[in-house]
Amino acid sequence: MHEPRRAEATAAGGSNGRNRLAEGGLNLKPSGRRHVADSLESSMPARSVGEASVADPVFSCKDVSVFYGAKQALKSVTLDVARRQVLAAIGPSGCGKSTFLRCLNRMNDTVAGARVTGTITLDGNDIYDRQHDVAQLRARIGMVFQKPNPFPKSIYDNVAYGPRIHKLTRSRADLDELVVTSLTRAGLWDEVKDRLSAPALGLSGGQQQRLCIARTLAVQPEVILMDEPCSALDPIATARIEDLIEELRASYAIVIVTHSMQQAARVSQRTAYFYMGKLIEVGDTHRVFTNPQHRLTEDYITGRFG
């Protein structure tokens, strides 16, 4: 399926080379799309290609499969998440990248009929262990969604909400300080410092998303999961969030699911490509986007199917 569709150039000889090249040149008939579906199963790797494990991972996933009823959404994924690094999960819709993300903070627990097998450890502890307190787990793992979802409260209360319910601060002054730090880290402080009691829903989309990130930071998580955090934002707001992600990775492990391959290339240090529930390839982003090892990865990132 990868042979170039061109006319064979005529054999070498002594006649005028320019004409020969022109005649034997390119076949410019519009090419049909390649039909990859038939050969996909055969080209799926038995194991993922690339470097799935890292030294001292924050998350370590081994043979993780997810079933929604009879349907298997994630097929035996083994993948580590490194500290102070951005891992981007890319792949076409329904490839399992969001399912993978939702395993990490046990959000799949909330889906009826969902079943998770394999092991996921956070700092060496199995997060699906019965002993594990899910609320505690989710406090350690922040999450930012596609659509900014601030609470219909004031800007201040949005950020203070998490610390209050998790009782992270002892005094009003402590809480104030945490709110300021979180808003500052999220790059929003200068824009909202004079209207902390204004309703959060009055902010622009990009500001709301940064508010959601501030709300996440206020709980002092170890990991931040981002599910398409920029897909509802304009390019400027997107650039701001990407700049923020770059800042945050100095302190947090970040896993970002994105439909934008360019975004994955811009913000991440590692890229994982999922397809049909499988982790096809994972590796350093600079390597994946210049020398993808698997043909499926190559075809996806160059826009040949998806």
Partner: peptide
């Protein structure tokens, strides 16, 4: 291969570029 993109106009652009390089070569 320069072809097979979902956006077929990209195939066209790449092939046109390729063809012009060969033309220059001629």
């Amino acid at each position: 291969t320069l072809e097979g993109h979902i956006a077929r106009s990209f195939d066209g652009d790449l092939n046109a570029l390729h063809m012009r390089v060969i033309e220059m070569g001629g």
